[in-house]
Nucleic acid binder design. Structure first.
Length: 712
RNA sequence: UGGGGGAUCGUUCAACGGUAGGACAGCGGACUCUGACUCCGUCGAUCUAGGUUCAAAUCCUAGUCCCCCAGCCA
């Protein structure tokens, strides 16, 4: 079994690991109920997955909530119950994965494992009871007819012609449904409630359908299966669930939930709804995740790019980090989209303390230390953690030829580059100072293939006795004493924040990130990693956190998954240089060095820093139309390369009597403006334009710049 | 246009008639044998319009916007 150590966490007390005391409206309700001694002060929750897919981080939120509430309350309990009422979609494989995932997350249902299918017989009896009391009837309408009779959102439904069958006939028919006398879909059992209810769920909802499918637990014992809306409240009630916590979309099912318990006059569980978790740059619906798996867009449910628990586990996430994340996101009723950066923060926070440090070179560049003795290997004792001596140390071999990261050398470096360059001295982490003397390139391609350096023997261990400092420390491995490994670099699965957000327009798969996985097969990693176990986690210094892939590694051949990069302030500097902010950056430095510039009379000044906050982007006008009811506004739909168009209202109609002329123009858009709600709609940006009292014209662009490119 | 929900910094969660606070992200700086970590600083919000009140994110009225519901799925 993999990740044995993590699995042991199965007995942790979630209340103990809680770093703060989050309070939310659900816990407030429960506290209030306890105070009033409702249910004799007992708190009993449940986590009720349907075994038709793998659990994902959204389920983790629910698991942490339900099990968390149980452990926080004296005597509180949380059941695990499979909501297995639809055999056509469910599978034992999913059940097994759910066991593993819940346990791995650190929660324990003890002896309280239940299946809705265990209640089939009781559910049937309750149905008989409803029929006898005239509260349910067998309906012979086809699925299509039921839909028509149901009415619409704005029109009431019509009573089924079978609604007033006698109790005897209903009883007979329902018993024969169970006995298998009727074909699939030919009849259903419905609750008799109110076809005119404004709540569609109350328009005589279906309770049972005929479905000949082999159930993963009950086999072929049944050919009628109860519906969720009927099964769930009764299951909760039978288990004595005091607080039945579910997601927002079930809010308007609550009247039916309450109806079932009320009409049957059994223990009243209370349903409470909260907003499900959405995470940026991923999808969270089981349907979409299943699609990714089935269409081979990812390798499996536990592909490390998946937001599934098993994917996160394989990626190198720890249960603690996920629990902590669930604490931090809170619980509320507002639809929300949590920044995946918060998840990344949580795993960094955890692994920073736990992960031993190692050195690994992903894109090797050969370095020869010319003044180092031939055929000599020495060993450095390097601590496993800079702040925690208790984590010990390991020996790292060093020799005349080394590998360093290609990115750690630049022939013509910009000012802020602190790493190796011709004539520069840097520290090899834990070893020596070296100075680059010569660059060897491939004659044909011009590519740098080797560096010749000299080392200072006096700096052994990494410090210079003369007190001289170096700006940079880089990591390295000994070329003759290292491991050749495969490293998989993962990035976000989608290129847009909300890939499932388009109701019209492209399918979510159109936004898959083609660079979500890059596999490096010629990485040089430090010798000691030879002993690394599947699932074991490390920090590769200066690169990120990595774990040994539990599926594809074998003794000699190791595969490392990058869990998450380290925070990288150099990448930001680099990006700002490339992104065309260079001029502004330099100007910023300049303005700091120089005395304040003389003020311009009569003008309100903004600083260069203020101006730099504007995110100016190239946009292409795709649509333009006049705004009825406004003499000035034109409504523009502008392409900023974001995979959707932005609506922008611009007061430029006086300059553009023929709005169609605007279509196709490249314009400059202030892209990071807070959207403004206008009378005519939301305006998501501004277009730069020039004007005097009479004329107005927008600033347009020629040339090869593309939508979304930066302008400065 | 039926019913059910929801609107607070860029994001997310608080504040329950009495100083709008935290976390993440951003920005700036200090420190550093990881451009990591840590530390310090900083930016930044109550959907709109009225009303009640000494005092409103919170109460009232009227709007606006967003989400969910017409499976014999859950």
């Amino acid at each position: 079994m993999r990740d044995q150590d993590d699995t042991k966490a199965g007995t942790v007390d979630a209340a103990e690991t809680r770093t703060s005391q989050p309070t939310d409206f659900i816990r407030a309700i429960i506290a209030e109920d306890k105070k009033n001694n409702k249910n004799d002060g007992k708190v009993h929750t449940r986590f009720p997955p349907e075994p038709n897919g793998y659990l994902h981080i959204g389920h983790a939120k629910s698991i942490c909530l339900n099990f968390g509430i149980a452990t926080e309350n004296e005597g509180g309990l949380c059941n695990l119950r499979f909501d297995d009422t639809n055999p056509s979609k469910e599978d034992q494989e999913y059940i097994d994965s759910i066991f593993e995932d819940v346990r791995w997350l650190g929660f324990d249902w003890e002896d309280r494992l239940y299946y809705a299918s265990d209640y089939f017989e009781k559910l049937y009896s309750f149905a008989i009871q409803l029929i006898k009391e005239g509260k349910a009837y067998v309906c012979d309408l086809s699925a299509e007819e039921i839909r028509q009779y149901r009415g619409t959102l704005t029109e009431p439904g019509k009573d089924s012609p079978y609604r007033n069958r006698s109790v005897e006939e209903n009883l007979d028919l329902f018993q024969r449904m169970r006995a298998g006398e009727f074909s699939d879909g030919s009849r259903v059992l419905r609750a008799k409630i109110d076809m005119k209810s404004p709540n569609i769920n109350m328009r005589d909802p279906v309770l049972y359908r005929i479905l000949r499918a082999t159930h993963h637990r009950t086999g072929n014992a049944w050919c009628i299966y109860p519906m969720y809306d009927y099964t769930h409240p009764i299951s909760d009630s039978l288990e004595g669930i005091t607080h039945s916590i579910c997601t927002l979309e079930f809010e308007d099912h609550r009247p039916l939930y309450d109806w079932s318990l009320g009409e049957l006059d059994i223990f009243r569980s209370r349903q409470i709804e909260f907003a499900r978790l959405n995470l940026t740059y991923t999808v969270m619906s089981k349907r979409k995740l299943l699609q990714l798996v089935q269409e081979g867009l990812v390798s499996s449910w536990d592909d490390p790019r998946m937001p599934t628990i098993s994917g996160l586990r394989r990626r190198g996430y720890t249960p603690e980090s996920i629990r902590n994340f669930c604490d931090k996101i809170g619980v509320a009723k507002k639809d929300s989209m949590v920044d995946i950066a918060l998840l990344e923060h949580c795993i960094r926070e955890d692994l920073n303390d736990k992960a031993p440090r190692r050195m690994a070179v992903l894109n090797p560049l050969k370095v020869v230390i010319d003044n180092y003795p031939q055929d000599t290997i020495e060993e450095f004792e390097i601590p496993n953690h800079p702040d925690n001596p208790a984590m010990g140390s390991r020996k790292v071999p060093f020799g005349r030829t080394l590998c360093i990261e290609r990115d750690d050398f630049m022939e013509d470096p910009p000012k802020k580059f602190f790493r190796l360059a011709p004539g520069r001295e840097v520290r090899l982490r834990g070893a020596y100072f070296i100075t680059c003397n010569e660059v060897v390139r491939d004659e044909a391609t011009g590519e740098v293939v080797e560096l010749h350096c000299s080392y200072d023997p006096a700096t052994r261990g990494g410090d210079a006795p003369d007190g001289r400092k170096v700006k940079g420390t880089i990591h390295w491995v000994c070329e003759d004493r290292c491991l050749l490994s495969e490293v998989r670099l993962y990035d976000r699965l989608f290129t847009v924040e909300n890939p499932g957000g388009d109701k019209e327009g492209p399918d979510f798969k159109a936004y898959l990130n083609p660079e979500s996985l890059s596999t490096l097969r010629a990485c040089r990693v430090e010798w000691s990693l030879n002993d690394a176990k599947p699932g074991e986690k490390f920090q590769f210094e200066r690169l990120g956190y990595f774990c040994v892939d539990a599926r594809d590694s074998s003794g000699a051949h190791k595969v490392f998954n990058r869990t998450v990069t380290l925070r990288d302030s150099w990448a930001k500097i680099e990006k700002s240089i490339e992104g065309g902010k260079k001029d502004i950056g330099d100007a910023r430095e300049q303005s700091r060095r120089e005395a304040p510039a003389p003020s311009l009379p009569g003008k309100d000044e903004v600083t260069i820093e203020d101006f730099a906050k504007l995110d100016l982007r190239v946009g292409i006008v795709r649509e333009a139309s006049v705004v009825e009811g406004s003499s000035k506004l034109i409504r523009l739909m502008v392409d900023l390369g974001e995979g959707r168009l932005r609506q922008i209202f611009a007061g430029i109609r006086p300059g553009y009597p023929k709005v169609d002329d605007l279509v196709g123009h490249k314009v400059i858009v202030v892209a990071n403006l807070k959207p403004r709600q206008m009378k005519f709609g939301l305006s998501e940006g501004m277009i730069l334009a020039g004007y005097d009292d009479e004329k107005i014209s927008i600033a347009t662009f020629e040339g090869s710049l593309q939508p979304g490119d930066k302008v400065s």
